[in-house]
């Protein structure tokens, strides 16, 4: 996501990234970002929560108008309700392909240790 934002911004489009992995977003370096501690698959909140969607979009728009410096990140104070954290319902049923068996896991570990992401 961050890499795409950089390309768009370089093409003279103003971008704001909503991220739930700010550690990675900072590492990549994006023009403007908003960080939120919501799970994968529900980054704008629970299904049907229009007020939350409006609030988050509002913050993205605020940042688009305000931020004066490349790399600005704003953190949102929202937290995922504890009873919903226990549901762990953001994990897909199908196992992640690279974790599906030992050979694939080893292949991924080798990539992580020695791989070239631009190959």
């Amino acid at each position: 996501m961050g890499l795409v934002a950089r390309v768009l911004e370089k093409a003279r489009l103003t971008t704001v990234v909503l991220t739930n992995m700010p550690w990675i977003t900072r590492k990549i370096g994006v023009p403007r970002s908003v960080a939120i501690e919501f799970p994968f698959g529900m980054i704008y909140g629970h299904p049907g929560e229009r007020e939350m969607q409006l609030a988050i979009l509002g913050r993205l728009l605020d940042l688009a108008g305000d931020a004066g410096k490349a790399g600005t990140m704003v953190e949102l104070p929202y937290t995922w309700p504890e009873e919903d954290v226990r549901k762990r319902d953001w994990f897909p049923e199908e196992p992640t392909p690279w974790m599906a068996d030992q050979d694939r896991l080893m292949e991924m570990m080798d990539f992580i240790a020695h791989g070239n992401p631009l190959e």
Binding site: M1, L3, V4, A5, V7, L8, K10, A11, R12, L13, T14, T15, V16, V17, L18, T19, N20, M21, F40, I43, Y44, L57, L60, L61, A64, P117, L118, E119
Partner: peptide, 27 residues
């Protein structure tokens, strides 16, 4: 590599063609 060097530039071109000023991205 393909996403960065081919897909994202095409997305940028498409968005500019649509007259977009502001892009809100999310993961």
């Amino acid at each position: 590599r393909v996403l960065m060097q081919e897909t994202a530039p095409r997305m940028a071109e498409r968005l500019r063609g649509l007259g977009v000023d502001l892009v809100l991205l999310s993961s």
